[in-house]
Structure formats: C-alpha cells, structure tokens
Design a protein around this nucleic acid. Structure first.
Lengths: 192, 192
DNA sequence: ACACATTAGTGTACAACGTACGCATGACCA
DNA sequence: TGGTCATGCGTACGTTGTACACTAATGTGT
C-alpha cells in the first residue's frame, strides 16, 4: 500500500529531523513521490501527523504490554522506567504519543483518565493488585493512577521545555521522585 | 521605547491568535511598524518569543506572590487553584511560561527543580512550614515540591494535548487529584 | 472489445512565512 | 558643515502548505 510507504517515510523523517523538519516535501521525497501525491492518501498535513500520533500511542502500548515483572510494585517501577526510556530514546515518537494535540474533532471520546485507555487499564490493574497484597495504602486506584501519569508527563514536559540544567539531572530527579512516589504509597509506618 | 511597543503588540497578538497566529508581520502591523523594523530590536523571531516567555514567567511569579492565605496548607491549595486558573484563563501566556522551550544556549542555569526558581522557593517554604506544624508527614520537602509541580504540569500538559473529553472533566479531575494529593501528605492515621 | 468512470500521481502556481540586504532618514556631535 | 550612528523601510529570496487542472492507469458494465 502506498499509504504505508508514506507513513514509513514520515516516521523516518520524524525520527531524523523532528517535528520541525517534518515537511510534506521531505516526506514525499523519502517516499519517492511528488509532494502532491500525499494528498491522495491524507487530507492534509494534520491528518498525516495524526497518523504519527496513533503510531506513537501503539508503540507505547506495546512497550507497556511487554513489561514482564511479576511483583506489582516492581511492575510499576518498570513502567516508570520504561516511560523515561521511551521519552529519552525515541523523543519524537514519544512526543507524538503524549504531547501532540489530538485533532479537535476527534477528542478522546471516552475518559482517558478514567481508565478507558488500554495502557492505563493495565496500570490500574497492578495498583489494585498491590493494594490487595497490602503493599499500597487504601487510596483510590484512580487517583493513584492519575498521579503516576501526571508525574511522568509533568517531568518530561519540564525536560522538553528545558527546565532542567542537563539530561543527567533530569534523569536523577525523575528517578528520585519515582522512588519517593512509590514509597509514599506504602501503608502507614512502612516508610523509610 | 519602541521595543516595549513591539512587546505589547506581540502579547496582544499572542493572546488573540495564539502561537500559531503569532507572525512577525502581524506583530509589526499591530505595532504600527514595518515587519523589518522588528529586527532592529530583536535578533530574530525566537528572541521575540523568548521575551514572551520571560513575560509569562514574571506573570506567574506575581500571581504566586499575591497568594494571601496564612495557613500553609490552604496556601498550597490556593497555589494549585491559581495554577489551574492561570492555565485556563490565560492559556497562551501560561504556555509561554511553562511549555515553551527555553533557548538552547540559555538553559536555566541553576537547578530549577532544586528550588532556585523564585516561585518554587516560596512553595518549599510553605511545605516546610506545614511540616513544622505537624500538618505534613516528614518526607523530603524537595520531593513534595517536585511532585506538586509535576502534578500541575502533567495535568495541564494532558489537557493541552486534548487527552480529556472536556474542560469540565479536566477541571474536575484536577481538583479531585489535588485534594487527594494534599491529603496523602498528612501524617499517618489522619487520612480520611 | 469498447466506452466510460474512478483512482493515483504530477506540475504549476499562489499566499504566507522568516529574514538577508541595501538604502533613506534623522539625531547628535565634531 | 561634515561625519557617525541609530532607526526604520522596500524589495527580494527561499521554504512552507496546498488549490487546481491535468495525465495516465485501472477497473467495470455492456
């Protein structure tokens, strides 16, 4: 399918040149087509970018589904580490997945926050498990999940806005905060 | 000063047309100048945008300094509310302050996260006060402050990416999470 | 086999963008 | 009076997204 070839080209351009360097002409060249040919397959540039967003989201879901840790708390630790890795090793794909505005018409129809997103559902399941095992205090699962998500998103968003002095510092602070966050969920008295 | 007139024009354009509508030509027209005149006062568009970022940051600092609550916990509540209001009532100015990448050359030289930023210093002072008063558990002030910041930034970042079904939902979830966050900081046993 | 509609791709052209370059104007000081 | 400097403008170029009109290929119905 030509559409797939265009999308592959777009992903390649995005990875090597970022969103700023993502132009119709460059994608077309990479796909071996004339610029206008893309418009047979995507209504406009926004639609192409939106396809990249979908790609980023699927990539993240695959990553989450691939986390193998048995212990629920360790699983959540691995999740937060995976999130950081995703943000650092595939920055543009990550941005496509998490920072790109969804098309206004097609907002996330259901409550992403309320756990309808596939990825967040997995997270909530582990939180429930940890609570059942007495590893976490009895606070609302949904609230914990939101905190976890906001945590990651907020940190990466600050890093993208260059609010840290260096990437090393960002990583160190992220990890410290992650540890403290998970600790703060332990039942009373078990905090170190 | 002409430079101030340009900046005012830029702020007006930003407010009415957003970053997408912020063009040299439009700012120049608003300021009653030819497009090229702006280049006598700003090296290029990035420098102008950077000035808008500084403006946004000062605006936020003014807001924070204006919070009058005596009780430290109430002060932090007011802070989180003010943050939400800022994001919703002056979206572009907020984005300039929190989401715009700082110029690569001039990264935040000191550790913003570590409390060198004026605004965060005020936050940490209140957290310390709450801990001293026995209102918060004895967890690292810095970690709490980071969590608070990341929380806000993460939520707004998700809203900007249209990850909520509506603004009403966003507000409701933000407030719920805020309440839960502050509750989770109370000393053991005092959680409802 | 023939006529015709649909699809895929191209080439040209336009408006809007950031901005390099060179020139005009006036203020100020010698 | 002449020279320097700051300020602003007009023109022009390259790059962007994409509207429009066109051609070539591919079915599809008779």
């Amino acid at each position: 399918m030509t559409k797939d070839r265009i999308l592959s080209a777009a992903k390649a351009v995005l990875e090597s040149a970022g969103f700023e360097g993502l132009t119709i002409r460059r994608v077309a060249e990479r796909a071996g087509l004339s610029p206008m040919a893309l418009y047979r397959h995507f209504k406009n540039k926004d639609e192409l970018v939106n396809a990249l967003m979908q790609d980023g989201i699927s990539a993240w879901e695959t990553i989450v589904r691939g986390i193998r840790a048995q212990d629920p708390v360790k699983w959540l630790e691995a999740l937060m580490k995976a999130y950081l890795d995703f943000a650092l090793t595939q920055p543009h794909r990550f941005d496509a997945a998490f920072f790109l505005p969804a098309p206004a018409a097609r907002r996330f129809p259901d409550d992403f926050a309320a756990g309808r997103s596939p990825a967040i559902a997995l997270v909530m399941a582990r939180i429930d498990q940890a609570k059942a095992d007495g590893r976490f205090r009895d606070e609302p699962t949904f609230g914990i999940a939101m905190a976890l998500v906001a945590y990651g998103q907020g940190f990466v968003s600050m890093q993208r806005a260059r609010r840290f002095a260096s990437d090393k510092q960002f990583k160190a602070l992220y990890r410290a905060a992650q540890r403290q966050f998970l600790d703060s969920l332990k039942p009373s008295g078990k905090n170190e």
